[in-house]
Every structure is written in structure tokens, then in C-alpha cells.
Amino acid sequence: MKHTISVLLQNKPGVLSRVTGLFSGRGYNIESLCVNKTLDPNVSCLTLVSYGADQIIEQITKQLHKLIDVIKVTDMAETEYVEREMVLIRIKAEAGTRAEVLRIIDIFRGKVVDVSSKSYAVEITGDEEKIQAVIDILKPIGIQEIVKTGTIAMARARKTL
């Protein structure tokens, strides 16, 4: 089963290598990985997506927590959360398809970030399914280049009555 795991860690040299080394050394999967500083520049937030049986995911979270530089590990599956990826796509856009491409991008609430006479580069954010849907629709028109971020995730605020 797919799990999105959020890890707060000390922003120090080699920390990312400790995390990825743990995964490769123990044979765990990393589907995607995304990391950047938090408001506190000494702390980074790393979001990773992994697949595995519950027992494996439990080991992954425990092993991550065992790393000395790790502050907090959250398996997002234990809570309500939102997750997003961002994708940059360069699409073939010639006379016959330029308007159609813009319409599609608009439907997915994407933005054009670069224009040339033969192509658009667009930015789209969403969860994994939405990004895949955009790609599936744009593919027949002609995707020239594609760059995707990993997933980032945030727990939803607790709803109280």
C-alpha cells in the first residue's frame, strides 16, 4: 500500500544521504522524495512516498526515527491530509492546437509559464491522479518535455464541532 511519510530533520550536511542510504541498504522503496527548508532554517522537511506492507512501513518509520538527525516522523496515512505534486510540461502548440492546449490547461487550472511559436510550457499542481490525467490528455497533442516534483503533504487541521 502507498504511504506518504513526512520527516522533519536537522538541516545538516549528509542528512539526506542517511535517509536514502537507509532505504537502499534495507531494500525499501522510494517512489518519490521532496525536501526543503522549513521556516526554521536549521530544520528541513522531507516528504517521501513509499510502497510496502504495513509491517514494512512500520519498520520504515521506526528506522527513520532512529536516525540521530531525525526530529519527527509522520505516516500521513494515520491522519487526514492534502498532498500535491507540481509538474512542468512543454507541449507542442502549433497553429491548429494552440487554442485547444490553452483550454485544457485552463480546465486543470494550470498556468502557462513559457511561450514560443511552436510550444507552451505549463505549470500544473495537484495530486498524483490529477497530474496523471493532464498527462494522459496532453500526450496525443505532443509532450516534448516533462519535469515532476515529488509529492509534498500536509495534515489537515483538526475539525472540531
Binding site: G14, S17, G25
Partner: peptide, 13 residues
């Protein structure tokens, strides 16, 4: 430090 990362409890440079 890179070599011993997986076989130390922790390491430092």
C-alpha cells in the same frame, strides 16, 4: 563518514 554511515550509530566530520 560516507563509507561508515550505514554501520555506525552516528558519525561526524
Amino acid at each position: 563518514v560516507g563509507i561508515t554511515r550505514p554501520c555506525t550509530k552516528h558519525n561526524y566530520l
